[in-house]
């Protein structure tokens, strides 16, 4: 089962790096989704490893929260795009020194 966990870790790390390097807000969001799914994979793997379904329930909850997050996040991106004509996260940098 270790290979599943390692895969999960790799996917998570890739998601992290994606969040750090990509500038298009929508792609950044996709990377966040990737991270969430990577953690889900780990949870499901643990569920099988330990022989109970709590891991799957946790994955289910993660998914619900991710859905809510996507809805709100995309709405925010839309709003920002509407006012600033840009979907780049770097352009939304007014809140600084």
């Amino acid at each position: 089962m270790t290979q599943y966990i390692v895969l999960s870790a790799i996917l998570f790390t890739i998601g992290c790096v994606g969040v750090l390097t990509r500038r298009n807000a929508i792609v950044v969001f996709m990377c966040v989704e990737l991270m969430l799914n990577a953690s889900n994979l780990a949870l499901v793997t643990f569920a099988r490893q330990h022989g109970n379904l709590d891991g799957q329930v946790a994955a289910f909850f993660v998914r619900v929260v991710a859905a809510a997050e996507v809805v709100i996040g995309l709405a925010i991106i839309m709003t920002i795009f509407r006012t600033r004509r840009s979907a780049s996260v770097d352009d939304a940098s007014l809140l600084k020194y």
Binding site: I26, A47, Q56, A59, R63, V70, V71
Partner: peptide, 29 residues
């Protein structure tokens, strides 16, 4: 990994709904 429910939900919710939402917003943007 013996999670048929999550299998279905993954396809329906993620690839079906959330990714469509992404594409929708992409088209708008």
């Amino acid at each position: 990994l013996e999670a048929p429910f999550l299998f279905a939900v993954q396809i329906i919710v993620y690839t079906g709904a959330i990714l469509m939402l992404f594409l929708f917003v992409l088209m708008l943007v």
